[in-house]
Amino acid sequence: MREEWTACLARMAETRDRALFARLFEHFAPRVKAYLIRLGMAPAQADELAQEAMLSVWRKAHLFNPGKANASTWIFTLARNLCIDRLRREKMPCYELDADMPDGDDRDAGEGAVISDRLAACIRRLPEAQAQVLYMSYYDGRSHSEIAEVLGIPLGSVKSRLRLAFDKLKAMWGESS
């Protein structure tokens, strides 16, 4: 499933084929919109920004490296950066656009996609307390201090729950390489 989108994006980057862009748009634009609404953006603005995000998918496709990220991860980072620019009128300090430096472990696209499917399954199996802080961070866009305040737990507990969740996800990552 996800492998297909990654291959589609990589092919679009090469061929500049608008039909491939249309397929990516139909799949990802409604998901990006959903994500932006979850982050607290008004639906009309989320709609507009989702379109803008898809436009940058087209414009920045030459920067997409399927060995480093799959399509959903890459589009997630584009939407996140746009959202930060828009909501806070600040640029996300960002190293990645000129990051030609070697990575410790480049993977091929197929491998990344398999990991992504397993990652989603793994997130669904996280203990409630860990899943909760993960969702509050990624979906609600809350800082760790805000999460601590909302849940009435120490900041250190928020961070240790996130670390525990991340350890599980990384262990899965290790198994599949």
Binding site: P30, I37, R38, N70, L169
Partner: peptide
């Protein structure tokens, strides 16, 4: 970031 990508796919599309 891959966690973010996986979570993006989990959301019901709007």
């Amino acid at each position: 970031e891959a966690v973010g990508g996986a979570l993006l796919e989990e959301l019901p599309p709007v």
